[in-house]
Design a protein around this nucleic acid. Sequence first.
DNA 1: CGAGTGTTTGATGTAAGTCAAAATAAGTGG
DNA 2: CCACTTATTTTGACTTACATCAAACACTCG
Lengths: 237, 237
Amino acid sequence: MPRHVSCNDCSLSPICLPLAVAPSQLDELDGIIRRGRPLKRGEHLFRAAAPFSAVYAVRSGSLKTYVLSDEGEEQVTGFYLPGEIVGMDGISTAHHVSNAKALETATVCEIPFHRLEDLSQRIPSLQHHFFSLMSNEIRADRELHMLLSKKSADDRVASLLLSLAARQQRRGLSSRRFRLPMSRYDIANYLGLAVETVSRIFTRFQQQDMLLVDGRDVEIVDREALCGGGRLHTEAP
Amino acid sequence: MPRHVSCNDCSLSPICLPLAVAPSQLDELDGIIRRGRPLKRGEHLFRAAAPFSAVYAVRSGSLKTYVLSDEGEEQVTGFYLPGEIVGMDGISTAHHVSNAKALETATVCEIPFHRLEDLSQRIPSLQHHFFSLMSNEIRADRELHMLLSKKSADDRVASLLLSLAARQQRRGLSSRRFRLPMSRYDIANYLGLAVETVSRIFTRFQQQDMLLVDGRDVEIVDREALCGGGRLHTEAP
DNA sequence: CGAGTGTTTGATGTAAGTCAAAATAAGTGG
DNA sequence: CCACTTATTTTGACTTACATCAAACACTCG
């Protein structure tokens, strides 16, 4: 992938920020974006407490965000795939509150936030889109809240798989077969489960012919069953 | 409380939207705000799937937001106290995704969202403040995520009590003694616990001289111990 | 090719859920 | 204002889903 592809030429533009900007104004957006060198697996994009100055659009690869509790234990708070925006939780505090780390080789577009704010003053649709993006993030968090507080371990894993599948689809990729960018440990941590539990659920889903698993490669065989929350083809009473 | 108090005269203005608007422009903000009749306990401010047209600033009383799962079970997603903004999760979808219900008699200021967007185009600090507000919401959700996926029932209840205390303080009220606007059921639901568990924890906190509880009236006796997550005065190893 | 992660599988423990029922509080209509 | 109904809260006995502990088994990558 070329280092200095412009928004104009970027294949992600239909699902990224450019979708909110008229073609005639796209150069203005393009002008404030800084394309960085690729991050290697394990490298940090930003760390908690570092000054907040920008949000980032993932161009390739993937990242996870996490926070450390007072006791130093890690909590994975999100996974970010190409076309998604990471770093929006730092806006209110002037410093980042989470850490962002590459799960694999990844490239991001850096969008200096104060310049994005300036631009949003002149491009109403961009302001609106950014409000929407943040609102989406809030909505996703509410769903996660439900997942963590009400749903079984099976439901949680199924739900994450379906979310990843949907996000693949949005990029025009297969929603049936894909490679998980994150470890079982990260999945478990994100979903509030033990690694062993996640591993057992993957094998069980496979035994129940809902999923084909080969390490990090997964194929969703029975989408309906997964939607039904892991409970295999149960009928309502 | 008078029906048509303006932002100028509202005691909440230092912690509400007006804090982001210069006094000279406050009338413009004031002009788009609609003050509704009080909501009675149990009345809905908005319902999921209803068209989204506004966000709301709580002026008095309190509300909870909740979503219903496919199976019809309720998940409480948040509590909103005076000075706080409710309804921001509907921005991206053009319809509300959650329900908002008054926990007690409550009054709100309705802020038509498209007019707020227009105003934000002209008042940069208002745009920034609104980005901040949403970012704050995201950050709070991340903390909740940690709470739900890593922390014990004790920690969760303690954490909610401390959050409510902090929000009391922001309004200039006592952070030691206050009245819980929500039922044990709502607390349990919000924190992903059973009602019985919450009730037991309240009594235990009282036995451990951390809390004084009389129905919904609480007094935080040992703030440190609560911060320490319910684990009574544990030292770091 | 060996050291170090990451993943799977099995055996056992426990925090918190569920079920049941009493005690208390909050409405509500006569 | 009081009797009655309906919600909310508390307490106790029992159950369970998932965590934890332990150990073998793959990758992968210097």
